[in-house]
């Protein structure tokens, strides 16, 4: 597919040149008659070439490499890698700390995602209520969306201050608790922080979804004598079902993969591995212990989990489109 017609492959082979347009267009303009069937077939690839080069070098190549590393010892820092077969994968899969990290990640993700959904839907419905004036709703909406506007690093330092032993949360609760340093509480605490940080995305999406539900559906339900609770279960939820499933899957993918910064800046995975996640576990293996082979094996397992989730997401989106 990609051989003749000099101008096209040249543009495909060019390294990152997102600023300058692929030359295909200009050549076609100077000689519109000469544009062959093949030229037309290559033109879209020329437009895609910066994207494809970037993805190939910085995404596909690392994935191939990390899968390779997972089966090797002495990689990255050491000049003579050695093929060890599935030994790394077996060592990771039987490591008790990996099991703890896996369990923590599942608990953290599932609780976060469910709470995001419940809070997001509750707030969206409150904000959608016709009983509150438009101005109040706009002000409240801006307040509700706030946690979403702070970067994870800011969220981490803010909550470390709020949760400090002599901090304001202990004062309000009249307690004297080390929220982030007590192994029994740390996982719950970081989960609550993550819930606080993540529900606005659900809220905003569900609010848009609620506003898209045709009013006459509720009208019809009322005429049939449906109570508000019945309306919720028979009109609202079925109408939002598609969005909710999409959001749940998206959030699972994000939360399971992207919790690193929050954990790293609040507990670092401690105390006593009580908040160790797959990402912090992998990061420590690589950049604290320099066990790059083992870390790669762990990273590959993380990738597998994400790919399963992504598979369901893409399948769901396909089903929605048709």
């Amino acid at each position: 597919m990609i051989t003749p017609l000099a101008s096209e492959p040249a543009s495909t082979a060019r390294p990152e040149g997102p600023g300058d347009p692929p030359p295909s267009g200009t050549s076609a303009a100077s000689a519109p008659r000469r544009r062959s069937h093949l030229g037309r077939a290559l033109e879209p690839l020329a437009f895609l070439s910066p994207t494809l080069i970037l993805l190939a070098v910085l995404m596909v190549l690392p994935i191939v490499l990390v899968i390779g590393y997972a089966f090797m010892d002495n990689v990255v820092t050491n000049p003579d890698p050695e093929f060890v077969g599935p030994a790394n994968l077996i060592e990771i899969a039987t490591d008790p700390t990996f099991h703890i990290a896996l369990r923590n990640t599942v608990v953290f993700t599932v609780v976060s995602v469910v709470a995001h959904m419940i809070l997001g839907l509750t707030f969206a419905m409150l904000l959608n209520s016709k009983r509150v004036s438009v101005t109040s709703r706009a002000v409240l909406r801006a307040i509700y969306v706030m946690p979403w506007l702070f970067t994870v690093a800011v969220i981490a330092v803010l909550w470390r201050m709020l949760l400090a032993p002599s901090g304001v949360i202990n004062y309000l609760l009249s307690t004297d608790v080390e929220w982030l340093a007590d192994p029994r509480l740390a996982l719950g605490t970081v989960t609550v922080i993550n819930i606080w940080a993540g529900y606005p995305f659900f809220m905003v999406s569900l609010l848009a979804g609620l506003q898209g539900i045709p009013g006459d559906l509720y009208e019809a339900a009322r005429v049939d004598g449906a109570s508000p609770v019945q309306q919720f279960f028979h009109v609202t939820l079925p109408q939002l079902r598609q969005i909710i499933v999409s959001l749940l899957l998206l959030d699972m993918i994000w939360t399971s993969a992207q919790q690193f910064a929050l954990i790293w800046m609040t507990t670092g995975g401690g105390p006593l591995s009580s908040t160790e996640m797959l990402s912090t576990y992998t990061y420590k293996l690589a950049f604290d212990d320099y066990e790059f082979g083992l870390a790669s094996a762990s990273a590959v397992l993380v990738l597998l989990v994400s790919m399963v989730l992504a598979f369901f997401y893409v399948r769901h989106e396909k089903a929605r489109e048709s």
């Binding site: 990390v66 990273a299 993380v302 790919m307």
Partner: peptide, 24 residues
């Protein structure tokens, strides 16, 4: 296939690519 690739790339956990990425 390319569209699917671009969609699925979003789901790759950053930690997965980090190790070889560093070397690249």
């Amino acid at each position: 296939p390319l569209k699917l690739l671009i969609i699925s790339v979003q789901a790759v956990p950053p930690i997965t690519v980090l190790i070889p990425y560093f070397g690249i």
